[in-house]
Write a protein that binds this DNA or RNA. Structure first.
Lengths: 133, 133
DNA sequence: TACTATTCCTAGCAATTTAGTAGCAATTAT
DNA sequence: ATAATTGCTACTAAATTGCTAGGAATAGTA
């Protein structure tokens, strides 16, 4: 797994929105200032979150973002996967997981890291934005 | 945490040595060919492992490497920490863990990732090279 | 003594990833 | 109209990753 600022900022934005009136509308600028995130960077992240259906946007003046569904229905795993790519705790695990099997690497090592991957995923799948808000 | 090829190769080399005669001497070239690792890259990694006391080297012709201690006494955590830096599952966790506290980020999010970090560390601390050999 | 095999050590480098910035088009409230 | 806002794409500087290069030092062997 790799968690970059993209995920981190995305999660912070969702947590922010989870605290607001679900009918409200909050501009990139407002979210960015509140959570101390570079605005133009956050804009891109919110765009991804919108396309994936986690937030909804209202364009034009007085526009902004709001959650598209209850915070309890958005897991951390989903958000991280969306913004940072597949969850895998290690380079090798992600490689070996998707490739049939490389030449003949140490199977026990691969299994070890896969076990960790599974554990992490399980925790992230079962934790929602509501849980960390 | 980030596990790069450095850790992976280092672990593969240690696993290889763990299987050999503890009195033997195995050249970088031999290990590299057996585990399919670029030799000059592996050389650097073995140098780190040597400096940290996990392997011992014999210089000159007929020289090479062997384990400096029983495989059961080398944990995966140690090796990964040595070769890839501090274990921390995420960018933010490693940042926030060492800095007192940034401005005022979401504490519950930080705690969540720290819990994951702790879990991963625990597993890696209690698994040795012998366990994956 | 020369030669060869090997570790020791440092520097460098190409590709990728990360963390943004810039700028303009489209939309909408006023 | 104008101002505020999202939508979208392209660019870029810095860091990281996964190596490669090459020479110095050391030691066994002919």
């Amino acid at each position: 797994m790799r968690l970059t600022t993209r995920s981190e900022y995305g999660l912070l934005a969702l947590i922010f929105l989870a605290r607001q009136d679900p009918e409200g509308c909050f501009s990139v600028e407002a979210i960015a200032q509140s959570q101390q995130i570079p605005a133009k960077f956050l804009e891109q992240i919110l765009l991804s979150l919108k396309r994936a259906g986690y937030v909804r946007s209202v364009r034009g003046s007085r526009g902004g973002y709001r959650l598209a569904k209850p915070a309890a229905q958005i897991t951390i795993a989903e958000v991280v996967r969306l913004l940072d790519g597949a969850l895998a705790p290690t380079y090798s695990v992600s490689r070996y997981f998707y490739e049939p099997t490389p030449i003949e690497r140490e199977q026990s090592l691969i299994r070890f890291f896969q076990a960790i991957a599974t554990q992490i995923s399980a925790v992230m799948e079962t934790t929602s934005i509501a849980d960390v808000t």
